[in-house]
Design a binder for these strands. Sequence first.
DNA 1: AATTCGTGGAA
DNA 2: TTTCCAAGAAT
Length: 366
Amino acid sequence: MKEANQLVENFQSEAFCDDLITWYRKEKRDLPWRLNQDPYRIWVSEIMLQQTKVDTVIPYYERFMDKFPSLKDFAHADEESVLKAWEGLGYYSRVRNLHSAVKEVEEKYDGNVPSTKEEVSSLKGVGPYTTGAILSIAFDKPEPAVDGNVMRVMSRVLSSWEDIAKPKTRKLFEEVIYKVISKEDPSSFNQGLMELGALICTPTSPSCLLCPVQKHCRAFEEGVQKELPVKSKKTPPRYVPMVAGFFTTEKDTLLIHKRADQGLLAKLWEFPNVEVSENGGRKEEQLAMYMKETYGLDVAIDEYVVNIQHVFSHLVWDITVYRGRVIGHVEEKRDVVCVTKEETEHYAFPVSHQKIYKECTGLKKK
DNA sequence: AATTCGTGGAA
DNA sequence: TTTCCAAGAAT
């Protein structure tokens, strides 16, 4: 691996910064988190934007800020409403960590987001990238904020052939950015690199003819911009067959279950379900047995409804859904409740189980 | 270092 | 259709 010093050798950092920042100030998109420099608003946006596209985030961000306008509002919000605000965005540990960290700021820092690297990076859910983003965008500090855009753009600008999927490569580019970053306007520099990656220096077929830093780009000079960056492939997702039950009770309510506090889709609500085993008999029987063993409930399976495939980053659920009824009284617990269809609106479900609900209630997906 | 954590949309 | 991803962090 080349060192950062070698990569930036003979690189005209000042001219690069000027061209990048001038372009950014003129062409930057009008996004809701660019309204002001409120550290809370910047922080929330950076968490939402992790591994998530701008177009997806915007409506969530608007609703979130309507619901929790200030850091104090969010700090005092209840967990269920917090999860509900994140419903459908994915990576739900983001909002659990954010809520925890905001409460810490409210108590430990009297509601003021800290502005030192040590304090910011110690907050839950705030890693190297988000630390640099908060410090540079909210506090104008010259810290690198190296995300996927920055690694792609700098790989091309410096014609680096390092595998950007390797953790070491991010550290290399952090060193590079420390040497290149504008001290006058680190906020526009960092956001400019990301904006460039999003609008011009895209993963496939970059628009080099429109690029404001084309004359600084070694990949363009060498004609290899489409070969860069190098990125190794991830392991394909694991296939998981499941069976789920849409159970009504004798009171004509729905039986739902709260998932565990940790792990996949933690603390979200779902319809009772279990992974199907190969030699465990028919799926209806496995579901009924699961209901008896896990909840002590006798159930009647009425009909097969649908199969739902849901793809995660690391696994694929194939859920066979049955409609059924609970026989007898249901004793509600912390993680097992019976709700009317209207009341489901107050519970946060993962998208896969929203699909189950829609299929079982006959609602059309839009 | 390699996995685990979601989702919807573009290529 | 399949692949790949998008402003990553925690373990």
